[in-house]
């Protein structure tokens, strides 16, 4: 059974990489870097710092490589580094921060009559994400107790477009949202020492630059 699965995988990989897909002037592989900024949100916060005074900001950097496997489809792999910062805007003071690292497989489905990797697309991704909290005021957090980190799977849905600058470079504005498959709960202790927030879906606005490799 495993052998069969392996052969099937091998064959489909061979077919995908050897199929005659136009890409953009024959170039099918691209590498891109995208800066993603989440919409600021209120609430959902630990009573540790008092309610209603905190804003959290999501910020990620994504490095991705995309490969056009069809006229309309791109498959890709990306790494995402980022943080969710909690900021006391009344006292102008940075609070706890969640550092995130994610690995994602994604696909981009190009819309209308555009030929991948040019034009508008819908992106779908499945990421494995790990988050770790840092907090200058919290001893437990800073010492990396298990309760203050978490791993989970998240699904993303996005919309974007690749605009070419020349035959090699392009920029990509995008908007996406994360849907957590299992909610982020790095804190199990329900007390005033640790964070108690829960992460819900949020919108990310991104702008990226890509380069066509071959």
């Amino acid at each position: 059974m495993r052998k069969l699965l392996f052969i099937t995988l091998l064959l489909s990989s061979f077919c995908i990489t050897n199929s005659q897909v136009p890409g953009y002037l024959g170039k099918r592989l691209s590498v891109s870097a995208t800066e993603l900024l989440g919409s600021p949100t209120w609430g959902q916060y630990s009573p540790r710092y008092g309610p209603e005074s905190i804003i959290n900001i999501h910020h990620f950097t994504r490095i991705a490589s995309d490969y056009a496997v069809g006229n309309k489809t791109v498959l890709g792999l990306s790494c995402c580094f980022g943080s969710m910062g909690f900021f006391d805007y009344i006292n102008d003071y940075p609070l706890a921060k969640l550092n995130a690292t994610a690995i994602e497989v994604h696909t981009k489905l190009f819309l209308g009559d555009h030929i991948a990797p040019l034009g508008k697309f819908i992106s779908l991704g499945l990421a494995y994400q790990r988050m770790k909290e840092t907090d200058p005021l919290n001893y437990s957090v800073n010492y990396g107790f298990k309760e203050y980190s978490s791993s989970f799977f998240t699904f993303h849905l996005g919309f974007g477009a690749n605009f070419f600058i020349n035959d090699f470079l392009y920029f990509t504005p995008s908007i996406e949202t994360n849907l957590h498959l299992n909610g982020l709960e790095p804190v199990t202790l329900d007390d005033y020492i640790a964070s108690r927030w829960q992460v819900s879906s949020y919108a990310l606005f991104g702008i990226g630059v890509g380069v066509l490799v071959f």
């Binding site: 005659q20 136009p22 953009y24 002037l25 024959g26 006229n71 209308g112 009559d113 555009h114 030929i115 040019l118 034009g119 070419f164 035959d167």
Partner: peptide
């Protein structure tokens, strides 16, 4: 090849390339 896209240089090149590639096939 009918397509609902603008005739920008990049779109046009992309579609022309697809046509010639198809022709070779």
């Amino acid at each position: 090849q009918l397509s609902s896209v603008r005739s920008s240089n990049f779109e046009l090149k992309s579609h022309l390339y697809a046509y010639f590639l198809n022709l070779k096939k």
